[in-house]
Design a protein around this nucleic acid. Structure first.
Lengths: 170, 170
DNA sequence: GTTAGTTGATTGAGTACTCAACCAGTACCA
DNA sequence: TGGTACTGGTTGAGTACTCAATCAACTAAC
């Protein structure tokens, strides 16, 4: 892997990469800060709550939840423990597999999510969506899809990332 | 700020936002993992080393370094302390301002950076650049610039983010 | 020159994440 | 039936980050 010569980045590529890096730091810094300041929810936790809220029954097996929220098992386990302390999630034994655990969003958790959502969405608009043209939003979606799955050109009928669902809209 | 109705994201906007989120997690996860696995350097530390390596004299005041690497003062202070333990950075008193500290990249630090750079660049290609068309790389640069500075359409002669410089190429 | 305010940087406590090690239960197969 | 391997999930140690508090030194005003 180190045998061949390194293909360094061109000036343009490097500029793109660095700008992207800075943009992500700026963006996620702002997103995280808003959620933490206004709702005392780290962004990672918010993601977990959203995934649960979108599931029929508002409950998911730990492993599925980990996948859905792009999280390691370990991380999810820690996170759900914290969310349980807050009373936002409840863990119960899985009826079909005695190893399994089911994480379920409580009413308090749903309420917390519903309360946090407007501010969060506003921040996503401020920091990202409203700064881009509609064309750029499309471009960003395609670029993201390419990054995630290795260059799929986004065929019309296939969802590239995940389901839709209205992110905690009450 | 909560007076007006929430402008929820449209389906397309939401898809873009979520895909972007997933893409960033995937991307930075891979970048970080490679650097840590092959060179035992967290990406944040790598950034610091790169900034220093690009500065004439390979030294910067702490505050400037914090700005350049998009880091808080506190974070930088902790990070430089760790880097100093590894012998990669040296802290000296600033001659003109006795409050100040100057962080200087040591030869060992430069060597570590030079050793890590090829693998890192290869990973950036694998995970990002080579998955995009040249047009998409340009689009990504413009989108990033818009995120960072509120919608600058990137006039030809102006660098939107930072200097060029060849990221630790020996 | 002494006070007030600001800036440069560090420190410590608290939180979230990672990795590796670890059980407990399930599945496969002899 | 009794291994062996795998899966689901948790735990604990270690690391990196955040925030708030702190200290030291510079600047400006009177």
């Amino acid at each position: 892997m180190r045998i061949q010569e390194t293909r360094w980045l061109s000036a343009g590529e490097q500029l793109a990469w660095r700008s992207f890096l800075t943009a992500c730091q700026t963006l996620f810094g702002a997103i995280d800060a808003q959620l933490l300041r206004d709702s005392d929810i780290p962004h990672g936790y918010y993601e977990i709550l959203v995934r649960l809220s979108e599931t029929p029954g508002r409950a998911l097996r730990m492993t599925q939840l980990a996948e859905a929220s792009a999280s390691s098992k370990s991380r999810l386990s820690h996170a759900v423990a914290r969310l349980e302390e807050r009373g936002w999630v409840r863990r119960t034994n899985c009826p079909t597999d005695r190893r399994g655990q089911v994480a379920e969003l409580t009413d308090e958790g749903f309420a917390a999510l519903a309360a946090a959502a407007p501010g969060h969405v506003a921040q996503v608009r401020r920091s990202l969506i409203d700064r881009l043209t509609p064309e750029q939003v499309d471009q960003l979606r395609e670029i993201s899809a390419a990054i995630v799955e290795g260059a799929e050109p986004l065929p019309p009928g296939v969802e590239p990332c995940e389901s839709e669902g209205c992110a905690g809209t009450p």
